[in-house]
Amino acid sequence: MQAENKIDELLPHQITEKADNIAFSKATKAFLSSFYLAITAGMFISLAFVFYVTVTTGSQDLAWGVKNFIGGIAFSLGLLLVVVVGGELFTSNTLTLIAKASQRITTMQMLKNWSVVYFGNFVGAIFLVLLMFLAGMYKADHGQWGLTALMVAQHKLHHTFTEAVALGILCNIMVCLAIWMAFGARTITDKMFAVLLPVAMFVASGFEHCIANMFMVPTGILIQHFATAEFWSSIGQDASTFKDLSIYNFIFHNLIPVTIGNIIGGGVIVGLMHWMIYLRPLQKSKKEL
């Protein structure tokens, strides 16, 4: 008897079914498991932003697109760690909206999962902010690392509310498409290639990721308020240049609108769209039988 041929990847409808099962599993996971995994995911994404700042520091002579592409490739490390090592990341957990649409979880279960993971991601990100500051990383390359971090953080506060929402939508479309393709992967190598380009694309294009911003903007705020006089002297700048780096501006000019956009981009546009295409007709036909 001939062995049955096996395809190397899952087909689109199979990926959607798998996504539904994973969404259910995430939404019903024990509180502490979700919280601890969310802390690690927040750290993974923060480490990726450290990598981004490091490789883009001193790259002023490169073309804008080339510099951003290099930074985007570096930043893809974060989502790859989440996918391979394991972690609960709020932006990808917006896909639990699929399990809600399938009526496998309640609205409260979904919102509880989002809240626990969001807070856990924040804890992980802030831990890395403090660790990197205590390590004096902002002083690297004669303060140029810190200057890059300040400029990136400040730029994120200068979008209008509508722009920030739209950039959040675009970002999480790409993040969740990367996760979606990783659902269909069978090896670590498959997952790496699935994640690499979507993440590089959203970072290079300047889209906004709420969890990454939990690291990047607080890093800028900490440098602006507590960096040494020697640091400001080394970069030839004054702290007042970055005075708009504040907790208020971060929350209301970036974090809130970007989070709204991330939910729409990942949960609605990627998650619900695929559910409507592949699972809704199947579930409807089963009910009619």
Rank of each mutant, 00 (worst) to 15 (best):
V129N: 04
W180Y: 13
F24N: 10
K284T: 15
Q224L: 08
C171R: 03
M201Q: 07
K284L: 14
M1I: 12
T162R: 09
P257R: 08
G58M: 03
I39K: 00
I264Q: 00
M216T: 09
A135K: 14
G58Q: 08
T219S: 11
G124Q: 01
A27E: 03
K18Y: 09
A227Q: 08
S205T: 10
A63L: 11
N68Q: 10
F35L: 04
T94N: 11
I105V: 13
Y52W: 07
S76N: 02
Y52I: 06
L222T: 14
I70M: 11
A185K: 09
G261D: 01
G58I: 02
F161N: 12
H274S: 14
A178Y: 11
V85T: 13
L197T: 15
V55G: 07
I70L: 14
Y118E: 00
T148Y: 08
L79C: 04
L245K: 02
F202I: 05
D8K: 11
K100F: 15
L37S: 14
N254C: 04
W180N: 06
M137V: 14
V53K: 04
T91S: 07
I105Q: 02
H274G: 06
F44I: 05
A149E: 05
A125P: 11
L255V: 08
F193P: 07
Q154F: 07
C210Y: 11
F161E: 10
A153T: 05
A74K: 01
N249D: 03
H13N: 13
N262V: 01
V55N: 10
F49S: 02
F250E: 11
D61F: 10
V117R: 00
S285H: 14
F24Y: 15
F231I: 03
A27G: 00
L131Y: 04
A30T: 07
A27S: 05
H142V: 14
G271R: 04
G86P: 09
I22K: 12
V258F: 08
D61A: 12
G236N: 08
K243G: 09
F49E: 02
K26G: 01
A178S: 12
S233P: 09
L97K: 08
A48M: 06
Y52T: 09
V165E: 06
V152E: 06
F51V: 04
V270D: 03
A30R: 12
A99H: 06
V123H: 01
F75W: 02
S46Y: 01
C176N: 15
A164E: 05
K156E: 06
S234D: 09
M273G: 11
G168K: 08
K286S: 13
V55H: 05
L157K: 03
I277N: 01
L111T: 11
A185Y: 11
M174I: 02
D20W: 10
F49Q: 03
T107R: 14
L37N: 12
A101D: 08
A99T: 03
S115D: 03
F231Q: 04
S92L: 12
F183R: 10
N213W: 03
L77R: 05
S240R: 10
T54S: 13
T241C: 10
Y118M: 00
M132A: 15
T57S: 13
I179V: 15
A153G: 04
M201Y: 08
N172G: 02
K156W: 05
E230D: 15
Y278W: 15
P218E: 06
I173E: 07
Q14P: 06
R186E: 13
E9S: 13
G265D: 06
G136K: 09
I179M: 12
L130M: 14
R280F: 13
T162E: 15
E208R: 04
L197K: 09
G65H: 05
L89N: 00
